[in-house]
Design a protein around this nucleic acid. Structure first.
Lengths: 98, 98
DNA sequence: ATATTTAACTTTGCAATACAAAGTAATTTG
DNA sequence: CAAATTACTTTGTATTGCAAAGTTAAATAT
């Protein structure tokens, strides 16, 4: 029984960030509005969590226009997917016992 | 894709609390020292997380003497096990996608 | 019999985090 | 021109997390 929580990634501890990454693991280019609605958070709160994940280079941003409306969408980077998968593995190892 | 993170239990978001509960899911009456060593945390920090879980009635405490040394050990309550299992289920649902 | 050690905290103090709410900017639609 | 929409940013506050130091009580070493 050693180093049990070492693999847990601080960046993914928060449930909103956990939610964002989960969504982006299986969906490409999900936009701000959809994330916001899916997670049920305020836009300011979502924006700050997104910024945090961006800083770690776990997600990347694309700004575009859909029709005439501005649209910001997000994708997990391969680094992000890798790190998140590692986090999930650590979680699983933790749960399944030592 | 709805209510994705609703089942995530705030009490288990923190990795130390996650670690404590994981250990107590499969081990009965684990003592302070072992938790501390296994998780690699300071005693003050561990104590505070334990207090938090205790307040939620997710774990219970037993104070005893082993030989002549005082010994405090912990067990997950059935409420705690249930709540933690629900948390894990929520995590799994989240990860496996909607 | 003092002094030190050990276990398990508690307190202190500070830095980081989380979040809502309000404010902002650049369109676009009424 | 006014109101709405998108996507933020800023502000302010409350909570959390954590290390380090202090505390208590009993145990052991000198």
């Amino acid at each position: 029984m050693k180093n049990l929580i070492a693999g847990i990634n601080k960046s993914f501890e928060n449930r909103i960030r956990l939610g964002i990454m989960s969504i982006l693991m299986v969906n490409d280019w999900v936009d701000f509005g959809e994330l916001k609605e899916t997670l049920g958070v305020t836009d300011g709160n979502l924006a700050s969590h997104i910024t945090a994940l961006e800083k770690e280079k776990y997600i990347q941003v694309r700004k575009a226009f859909i029709g005439k409306k501005p649209n910001t969408s997000f994708q997990a980077t391969s680094e992000g997917k890798q790190a998140f998968q590692a986090h999930l593995n650590a979680l699983e190892a933790l749960i399944k016992g030592m």
